[in-house]
Design a protein around this nucleic acid. Structure first.
Lengths: 206, 206
DNA sequence: TTTTAATTGTGAAAATGATAACAATGTGAA
DNA sequence: TTCACATTGTTATCATTTTCACAATTAAAA
C-alpha cells in the first residue's frame, strides 16, 4: 500500500470517529456532503480522500458506512493493536494517560516511566510505572513502538536516544523542546504553548 | 501589517523561545544556521521567515538576538497581554491550566469554568473557577478573547455558541469533536487522539 | 419508458509551503 | 590594501494540499 498524505491520514481518523456515531444512529449510507458537514470540511475533500484509499461509493446512495469504517481500520490499525509508552508521569503525563486509554481499541498505553521513586513500581490508571532506567528493557520486552514524551524539556534529548535504541518508531513530543530524531522515527511535535500563541496571533490580526 | 503564513507564525513562537535561552547563555548574535539547528529545520527557512517579518541581519555577524526577540514580540503579543479562559476543569483541563500558566508573559489563563458545583467558586492554580452559566457575563467583563475547550465532547456545540456571543475570537479545541465556528473566530483543533493515530499509521507504514 | 436531478470520481488549476540556487556584500585574513 | 569566503536576502523551483469544474452515471420522478 502506498503511503497516504499526512493530512489525509488525519482526516481518516476523524471520518472513522464520526462514522461510528452515525452508524449507532441507525444510518447505513452517507453522502460526501454529509460527512463533510460533520467535520466542517468540503465534500470534495471527502471524496478525494476516499478516492485515495481506493474505495468507491454508490452513485446517489453514497458510501456504505460499515465498509468505510472497516477499510479505514485496515489502513490505520494493525491487527494486534499498537502499544505505546508514556515517559514522564507528572501532572500533564498522568492526565494524558487517563484521558487517552480506552479511547481507541487498537492503540493503548501499556507502560509508564518516571524517575520519581514515589511513582515508580506503582500502577496508575491501570498502567504499571517503571523507573526510567528500565526504559530499554521494558520497551523491548513488550514490543512497544510508540512513545509519548511528557518529561521536563531538559531531559528529552537523552531519552530520545534510548528510545531509538529500544526500537521505538514514533514519538509524540509534548515537551516544548524541538527534538532531533533519526530518520526512521516519525516525530509529531505537539506543543500546546506554540499553538496557543498562534491562536493569539490570529486573534490579534483579524 | 500583512498576515503571516500560519507555519511562519508557529516557527516565530519557537524562535523566540530558543532565543531567550540563547541570550541567557550570553550570546548577542546568532546565525541562521545556528537557529536552524536548535529547531531542527533548515537555515533557508529561518532566513525566509525573518525576511517575511521585515528584519535584516548583519552580514557575517548574523541576527541581533535582542532585536529579533523584541520584533517577534511586537508581532505576536499585544501590549496589554491576551487573556484566556479554560472551559472544563476535568483531569485534562486542570493539568493544562497548571502546565500553561506562567509559560508566556503576554498570554495567560485568567478564568476557568465548570458545571460541577464541587469545583465552582473555588480557586485552582491561582485561577477562579466559575459556573458555566456565568460564561458570557465573566468573559465580557474580563475582556477574554481566547477560549480553551476541555469539556466532554457532547457539550461543546452549545458552549461555542455562547463563546461566539461573548466576544471570543479564538478557540483551542481539545475535545475530539470537530467544531463549527463562525468565520470571524480562529479555531485550532488540538486533538491528541487523532495525532496519536496518525503517528501509529506512519509507524505501521515504514 | 424517458427525463430530471443528484451525486460520484477525477483531471486541472490554484494556493500554500519548503527547498535550491546564487548574487550581493562586507568581514577578517594576508 | 586586496583577497577569500562566509553569510545574508531573494528569486525561482519544487512539493504538498486544497479547490474548481465537469463528465459520467444512475436513482427516482414523471
Amino acid at each position: 500500500m502506498i503511503t497516504l498524505p499526512e493530512k489525509t491520514v488525519e482526516r481518516l481518523c476523524k471520518y472513522r470517529r464520526v462514522l461510528y456515531n452515525t452508524i449507532s444512529a441507525g444510518k447505513q449510507h452517507i453522502f460526501s456532503h454529509e460527512l463533510a458537514n460533520l467535520l466542517q470540511i468540503t465534500p470534495v475533500q471527502v471524496r478525494r480522500d476516499i478516492m485515495l484509499i481506493g474505495y468507491s461509493g454508490t452513485l446517489r446512495k453514497g458510501y456504505d458506512i460499515k465498509d468505510l469504517i472497516s477499510l479505514i481500520g485496515n489502513i490505520l490499525d494493525t491487527p494486534e493493536g499498537q502499544k505505546a509508552a508514556i515517559i514522564g508521569l507528572g501532572n500533564l503525563g498522568s492526565s494524558i494517560l487517563t484521558y487517552f486509554n480506552g479511547k481507541r481499541a487498537k492503540l493503548s498505553i501499556i507502560a509508564a516511566f518516571d524517575i520519581d521513586p514515589q511513582k515508580t513500581n506503582r500502577v496508575f490508571g491501570g498502567v504499571q510505572c517503571y523507573p526510567v532506567d528500565r526504559l530499554e528493557e521494558v520497551i523491548k520486552a513488550q514490543g512497544i513502538r510508540l512513545a509519548i514524551l511528557t518529561v521536563p524539556a531538559n531531559q528529552s534529548p537523552d531519552i530520545v536516544e534510548v528510545l531509538a535504541m529500544s526500537g521505538v518508531k514514533g514519538i509524540m513530543n509534548f515537551t516544548p523542546k524541538a527534538l532531533h530524531v533519526p530518520d526512521n522515527i516519525y516525530l509529531e511535535e505537539y506543543d500546546m504553548v506554540t499553538s496557543m500563541e498562534k491562536v493569539a496571533y490570529f486573534i490579534k490580526q483579524n
